[in-house]
């Protein structure tokens, strides 16, 4: 049984500027009592999520909506375990898989085939499983001979095709997606939509951050609206 429980989660995000990332400046400020090197301690904190509570249960297909900077991406990264809440609790049951930045974890010098193995293993597959996924991914990405070429020779569209194909080949229990489906030609977009639909249906929990109303109606049965890091609306669709 997969579930996500978020209780009063707050995520505060330190923004370091160049000066505060310098050891030299830090030492100068310690040595001079902070008189000379002003601004070293000025680490601005942004409250990206503010006292958020909700539960997601098996079968929920959740769309996260809100303006830029409303906290959607932060929430996804927090659910993925990349950021930790500064206060509050998050409890997750089930294997989490993420599609945030498509090219994350790719090595430009490696061929398409090698990157498939690498990405699949990063997503949690064993080496043998990853190798078994190759034919399916190759067929879906449909980039032909380029599969055996280093990834740096790919166009942006081809990169998206490859990364997306790997991401949807692994059947996760909990799937988190930060809107990524912008690229690729219309033909691929169509196939991607169909595939995503089937992946979303086979996952027990699906969370998507998007600005597109169409995606929400297509994939989701529940919408969480965020404003300035606060959860302001939770509706069933």
């Amino acid at each position: 049984m997969s579930f996500i429980k978020v209780r009063n989660a707050t995520v505060e995000y330190p923004i370091y500027h160049a000066n505060s990332m310098s050891l030299r400046n830090r030492l100068v400020s310690v040595g001079t009592g902070g008189a000379i090197s002003r601004g070293v301690k000025n680490v601005v904190t942004v409250k990206a999520l503010d006292d958020v509570s909700f539960e997601i249960n098996e079968g929920d297909r959740v769309g996260l909506v809100g303006h830029n900077g409303a906290g959607k991406s932060t929430l996804l990264r927090t659910l993925a375990g990349i950021y930790s809440p500064t206060s509050g609790e998050i409890e997750i049951e089930g294997r989490v898989s993420t599609i945030f930045e498509l090219a994350a974890g790719m090595d430009n010098e490696l061929t398409g085939y090698e990157n498939i193995v690498r990405l699949a293993m990063l997503a949690g597959a064993r080496k043998s499983e990853a190798k078994n996924l190759i034919p399916e991914i190759e067929a879906f990405a449909d980039i032909g001979e380029f599969m055996a070429m280093p990834v740096h020779s790919y166009s942006a569209g081809m990169l998206t095709r490859l990364a997306f194909s790997v991401a949807v080949a692994i059947r996760p229990e909990i799937l988190l997606i930060d809107e990524v489906l912008g690229a690729g030609d219309p033909e691929f977009q169509k196939r991607a939509k169909q595939r995503l639909k089937s992946v979303v249906e086979s996952a027990s929990i699906f969370v998507l951050a998007t600005h597109s109303k169409e995606m929400i109606t297509l994939y989701c049965n529940r919408a969480l609206r965020f404003e300035h890091g606060r959860l302001v609306q939770d509706e069933r669709l």
Binding site: I82, A104, L122
Partner: peptide, 9 residues
Amino acid sequence: RTLLLNIHV
């Protein structure tokens, strides 16, 4: 960093 920011590793 792209790894650390995109995958729970």
